[in-house]
């Protein structure tokens, strides 16, 4: 009976967290797949040069793997940071990704249920004032922005290592970090990721005006008007 209760609780927990769990599993599988595919790719190049084969561990601790991972991470976090921050102030008529036109801005304390308007079940810092309330009230954007900056910094460090290793292989002098972060290679890596993320967000904002996905909170209800903005599904 106790065992059955435990199973029921576990199943309930999995169901209640299924979105996070599904993405966590897919992320780990994709990262593992990248590690294996990247190893095989580099191994192929090494053999062509008459070099010894490399292990998965050697590859995942290499600057090549690190820069590839970091450059993708930074752009994803930049995308979400911009999205979180810009949707406070900017709106898109008809888009499910936008709030109602008249709600543009940080909104009132009452609408945000903070300070004197906090509910009994509101987070403790929502009842606070001053810097604590500001910090909590902007914590999502701040953390996303911080992870973006850290990932971008990691990209610059790992990218310099990978770039300099290649330069030495090409019988050229390595470059300093400051030269690297102003180099076409660094900006090419950054901008090629940014443009794709920005296009994806633009597509989401615009397509959600006219297209629907039944049952998804990322879409308006199927029967909602194209012009309806800030509709709760």
């Amino acid at each position: 009976m106790v065992l059955r209760h435990g199973v029921v609780q576990t199943v309930k927990w999995i169901k209640e967290n299924s979105l996070s769990l599904a993405f966590l599993v897919m992320f780990l599988l994709a990262l593992g797949g990248q590690a294996v595919a990247g190893t095989l790719d580099l191994d192929d190049q090494q053999r062509a040069m008459g070099d010894q084969p490399i292990s998965v561990w050697e590859y995942v601790t290499s600057s090549s793997f690190a820069v590839d991972v970091a450059e993708n991470w930074q752009s994803e976090y930049l995308q979400f940071f911009l999205y979180i921050a810009l949707t406070v102030w900017l709106v898109q008529k008809g888009s499910n990704e936008s709030k109602a036109i008249e709600d543009a801005g940080a909104e009132s304390d009452e609408e945000q249920r903070i300070g004197a308007h906090a509910a009994p079940d509101s987070p403790r810092w929502a009842r606070a004032s001053g810097p604590r309330l500001w910090l909590f009230g902007n914590s999502l954007g701040l953390v996303m922005g911080l992870i973006f900056l850290l990932s971008w910094a990691a990209q610059s460090v790992a990218g310099q290592a990978a770039y300099n290793s290649q330069r030495l292989a090409d019988l050229r002098d390595p470059v300093t970090w400051s030269s690297y972060v102003t180099s076409p290679e660094f900006w090419n890596r950054s901008l090629q990721n940014w443009q794709s993320e920005l296009l994806a967000v633009l597509s989401m904002v615009v397509l959600s005006i006219y297209l629907r996905q039944r049952g998804s909170p990322e879409s308006k209800p199927v029967g909602a008007a194209h012009a309806a903005t800030g509709v709760e599904s």
Binding site: A66, S151, A158, A161
Partner: peptide, 11 residues
């Protein structure tokens, strides 16, 4: 950061 630490192992 922790993330950067792992990523930066390569360097």
């Amino acid at each position: 950061s922790g993330v950067a630490l792992v990523l930066a192992l390569a360097g």
